[in-house]
Design a protein around this nucleic acid. Structure first.
Length: 554
RNA sequence: UGGGGUGUGGCCAAAUUGGUAAGGCACCUGACUCUGGAUCAGGGGAUUGUAGGUUCGAGCCCUACCACCCCAGCCA
């Protein structure tokens, strides 16, 4: 027995799990992630996935993937496909634990019969409207249905007719017989089974009776021997019903439901309804639009899956509703990318720079380190010549103390190349904007270092105009202006969430990167070669995240 | 006005059986630096929702109050 001090559990759920293991209540832990296949997974789901699979991994247990497909009208195979793809991308393996609630329809049916036989459920022939009208309100108790006390045998007959398709949709419903006066509305004889003639994505037209979540979920959990069934806060007052089902149906195990707060992120929306609207209204390009908080979107954006997992761990698990700053996600992404992503130079807003004392047709290839963070990444060569592109932002006609880049009279370093001193600028006669910056270079600084140890305040990235490749760049910003877009979210969309920059100059080596590759454009940020839109010779770069403070210059 | 939850620095979030407020992100400063990045060092900032009470001592216990979230689908 190893009694060495262990790390205390990271959150209250893991504490419960640890206690259940320590007390011998469970010998092995089984969790599950139970998505309904009616939408794409998003970062909020990632939190739940990391929690459930994390617990399984840490305890040597198992985490199942169970599709909660009990409402055929909203579910489809496209979603079960995408959900599995996204989960695998995130890095999790459910092994042989792939299940569908629809696999349990027969068992659910038997459970329904058992409850009726025990007098714990009955077939109610009231209309949906009547049931709603007699449920009572938050402060007043409900009225019992006239069918509540009918003989079990009679309910059983009707139940069989429901399944047999003898009754039209909505003709009746199976209700649990609990307490119409309960202050918890979920206990006022909740519906368990309803008739719905709809083709199910897996069972086709075999069934016309479908179980409700409150009935299917606890039974599915028990059938899979789930030990800890986590869910979000809004299902907290369903727990007594969950426990009621588990206690009253003959089941192989007794799972326990534990609730935690769902994840919310600033500057985005995470509700399925709003996400669907963004896609259907064409506000974004699809579920995998890089601005979307969906896993498909984050993947296309270039976010590494382990950065996302790290994020989920850092966010924690608790019961307080909270909104996490998207800056934390961005931090996790940078932290993951910085040490291992190769650097390149490219210019987003080009301004011509001419080196007057450099030979007209001169050319030389200079060594550049691929990643200053990682000597093993080696070097590459970048072409240098008399005409270069630099970033417009890196030049100002009037320099201030806070601005230490290029300005008339100023000397700066061109990364991996030479020190240059600005000798003049040509302006557009009508706009007054600079169109060409004139410089002289110091041949003694070749490679970027001055012999006498002379230093310079700024280093600029640049691209040789004659050698430049052209790449398309897509810059992304938060989808919403507000940290927490409310119901008027459509009015709070950030008009600049996407900026497309066509044919920007880039060093030749950048044009050679493979689709899907992640790179850093020096001084600009991290980018991912879009795997779908990039063509040979026509690279498309998606911005993953900018460099920290990249926007706050001068 | 019923029930269920939650309230700890700008944002998350810890705090063994009550012992005198971790950590991360964000922000600021300094060092270093061929990315105003990274790294390193340091810093500001919390009367732990409020008011009482118990106690030598309370974020943790008691009482009252306040705020916010969820619930009246034959959705999940």
């Amino acid at each position: 027995m190893d009694e060495s001090p262990k790390e205390s559990p990271r959150d209250f759920i893991r504490s419960i799990v640890a206690a259940d293991l320590a007390s011998g209540r469970h010998r092995a832990i089984v969790t599950r992630f139970p998505p309904e296949p009616n939408g794409y997974l998003h970062v909020g789901h990632a939190k739940s996935i990391c929690l459930n699979f994390g617990i399984a991994l840490e305890t040597g247990g198992q985490c199942n993937l169970r599709f909660d497909d009990t409402n055929p009208e909203k579910e489809s195979d496209e979603y079960v496909r995408s959900i599995q793809e996204d989960m695998r991308w995130l890095g999790f393996d459910w092994r042989d634990g792939l299940h569908f609630a629809s696999d349990y329809f027969e068992a659910l049916w038997q459970a329904a019969r058992e409850l009726v036989e025990k007098g714990l459920a009955y077939v109610d022939e009231q209309t949906a409207e009547e049931i709603r009208a007699t449920r009572g309100t938050l402060t007043e108790p409900g009225c019992p249905s006239p069918w509540r006390d009918r003989p079990a045998a009679e309910s059983l007959v009707r139940l069989d007719e429901m399944r047999a398709g003898a009754l039209p949709d909505g003709a009746c419903v199976l209700r649990a017989r609990i307490d119409m006066a309960s202050p918890n509305l979920n206990l006022r004889d909740p519906a368990l089974l309803r008739i719905r003639r709809a083709t199910h994505h897996r069972t086709g037209d075999r069934w016309c009776v479908y179980p409700m979540y409150d009935f299917a979920h606890p039974i599915s959990d028990a059938l899979e021997n789930i030990t800890h069934s986590t869910c979000t806060l809004e299902v907290e007052d369903h727990r007594p019903l969950y426990d009621w089902v588990v206690a009253n149906v003959t089941l192989p195990s007794r799972p326990r439901q534990i609730e935690f707060a769902r994840l919310e992120l600033t500057h985005t929306v995470l509700s399925k309804r709003k996400l669907l609207a963004l896609v259907q209204e064409g506000i974004v390009g699809g579920w995998d639009d890089p601005r979307m908080p969906t896993l498909a979107g984050l993947r296309r954006r270039g976010v590494p899956p382990d950065a996302l997992r790290d994020f989920c761990e850092r966010v924690g698990v608790a019961k307080a509703n909270s909104v996490v700053d998207v800056a934390l996600l961005e931090h996790c992404v940078r932290e993951r990318l910085n040490p291992e992503v190769p650097r390149y130079m490219g210019v987003l807003r080009p301004l011509e720079l001419v080196i007057e004392n450099y030979p007209e047709d001169g050319e030389e290839w200079l060594d550049a380190r691929n990643n200053p963070e990682d000597p093993a990444a080696g070097t590459r060569q970048v072409p240098f010549s008399r005409r270069l592109w630099i970033e417009r932002d890196d030049f100002r006609q009037e320099a201030t103390r806070k601005f230490w880049r290029l300005a008339p009279g100023r000397e700066v370093r061109l990364r991996w190349a030479y020190f240059v001193t600005c000798t003049g600028v040509e302006l557009d006669p009508t706009t007054g904007e600079p169109v060409r910056v004139l410089c002289t270079y110091d041949p003694a600084t070749r490679g970027g270092d001055a012999p006498g140890g002379r230093t310079v305040k700024a280093t600029l990235h640049w691209v040789s105009a004659r050698h430049a490749a052209a790449v398309d760049v897509r810059l992304y910003d938060r989808l919403f202006l507000d940290e927490r877009p409310g119901e008027d979210w459509r009015d709070r969309l950030n008009p600049h969430s996407l900026e497309v920059l066509a044919a920007r100059p880039a060093e030749p080596a950048l044009a050679m990167v493979a689709p899907g590759a992640r790179v850093q454009l020096e001084r600009l940020g991290y980018f991912c070669a879009d795997a779908r839109d990039s063509r040979p010779g026509a690279l498309v770069l998606n911005q993953i995240v900018g460099l920290k403070g990249a926007a706050a210059k001068g």
